[in-house]
């Protein structure tokens, strides 16, 4: 019995100690003039989908749930946000070069179609972020059109 208490006590102590290691929160401006939705003039219905399903990890502004401040959950989320933004940051869309934009648009469609994105672990908590086949089709159709437009633009 004493052993059980010791283990419980130790676990609690570790849990308390790790709370002191806090990753910096991803809370930049929501609106910047380089934002994807503004720069590429994303139609409202699609903009809502992107904001709802992608922007938490792919922009400079994350809507954190309450438990996101608690380690080790905070570390886990932070890792996803850092990685997500490294691949694609919608907040700096305006400064990405044209070829890269076309590549990203192509990948957005592909990853949604393949069910790679949004991440399964994200959907586990954010049920509302799941994309319907119709939504994916709409994303792909628009992304293809936008890629073509970017290609033709000067």
């Amino acid at each position: 019995m004493r052993k059980v208490y010791a283990i419980l006590g130790f676990t609690l102590l570790v849990l308390i100690l790790i709370q002191f290691f806090r990753p910096e929160k991803n809370l930049g401006d929501i609106d910047t003039h380089d934002d994807f939705i503004q720069v590429s003039q994303v139609p409202d219905t699609l903009a809502r989908i992107f904001l709802n399903s992608c922007y938490d990890c792919h922009s400079n502004y994350t809507k954190y749930p309450w438990y996101a401040s608690i380690a080790p959950v905070s570390w886990y989320l932070n890792k996803h946000i850092v990685e997500g933004k490294a691949h694609l940051n919608f907040s700096s869309w305006g400064i990405i070069d044209k070829a890269k934009k076309i590549s990203l648009l192509d990948n957005i469609c592909e990853e949604c179609s393949d069910g790679v994105m949004p991440l399964k672990s994200y959907l586990l908590i954010h049920h509302h972020a799941a994309l319907s086949p119709q939504e994916i089709a709409a994303i792909c159709e628009w992304a293809e059109k936008e890629a073509m437009e970017i290609m033709k633009s000067e």
Binding site: A99, I102, S103, L105, A147, M148, M151
Partner: peptide
Amino acid sequence: KATKKVSLFNE
């Protein structure tokens, strides 16, 4: 398609 080619070249 041309856009796909650009995407793949980039990658």
